[in-house]
């Protein structure tokens, strides 16, 4: 029996197991996830990329942006295209789709319901094409794609592209009473004083390169 055991765990097997283990270890590490957070100065691929600018100092948390969006875009039951979040210190953040430079939703959507427009970088989701697989809900780090159990499909902020085409501002920006929420070409708003692209605890902007500029409360 002893002799048998000695044979069962031969040197070759030990090497084999070692090879499996080290391959596994290497594969676990490879997709470079240790990405550095950096300032908002990263230029988008598209120089005409539009983005939202949110000034934390000016926001009073009235949620009119949310209501304006809901009115203008007739949110489907159970969806919220824009959120106003409250932090522990009483700070707010108004956030919707960030029309990312690298939109993960568009990459993973199997039916190509998402398109990123060449003219302004707006990411538009066509709900008529959506099959409701919810893959984009996992892919988007900002919870922008919203699923309605009522209609069985995803919808999300489209930057009021139709209003913009008619020369109007996006509904949320238009109705913000304090000017906390504005928008513009990303390369321009990135130059605002104190602009950052990430708050602590929010996803690393390297993941999708969001077109959102935040001016945090000093």
């Amino acid at each position: 029996m002893d002799n048998l055991k000695g044979k069962l765990i031969s040197r070759r097997k030990v090497i084999k197991i070692g090879a499996i283990a080290s391959t596994a270890l290497a594969l676990g590490i490879f997709p470079g996830r240790i990405v550095k957070a950096d300032a908002s100065s990263d230029a988008p691929k598209n120089p005409k990329q539009l983005g939202f600018k949110y000034d934390q100092e000016k926001c009073i948390g009235c949620r009119v942006c949310q209501a304006a969006c809901k009115d203008a875009n007739e949110w489907e039951e159970g969806t919220e295209w824009r959120h106003v979040l409250t932090g522990k210190s009483g700070n707010f953040l108004s956030i919707s789709c960030n029309h990312c430079d690298k939109p993960a939703c568009a990459t993973v959507c199997p039916v190509k319901a998402y398109t990123k427009r060449d003219e302004d970088g707006i990411v538009i989701q066509d709900r008529e094409k959506c099959v409701g697989c919810k893959y984009c809900m996992y892919a988007c780090p900002y919870h922008a794609p919203q699923f309605s159990y009522d209609t069985g499909r995803i919808s999300k902020c489209h930057f009021c592209f139709e209003r913009q085409e008619n020369g109007e501002k996006p509904a949320c920006v238009h109705r913000c009473p304090t000017g906390a929420l504005t928008y513009g070409e990303l390369t321009t708003i990135q130059k605002s004083k104190g602009a950052v692209s990430q708050l602590e605890g929010l996803p690393n902007p390297e993941l999708t390169k969001p077109s959102l500029i935040i001016i945090p409360k000093a």
């Binding site: 596994a24 594969l27 676990g28 590490i29 490879f30 997709p31 996830r33 993960a104 993973v108 996992y138 892919a139 988007c140 780090p141 996803p203 993941l207 999708t208």
Partner: peptide, 15 residues
């Protein structure tokens, strides 16, 4: 391939 879910985002998953 889902970067926004760290628990899944490992090359070991397919293996």
């Amino acid at each position: 391939v889902i970067g926004a879910v760290p628990f899944w985002n490992s090359g070991l998953m397919p293996i």
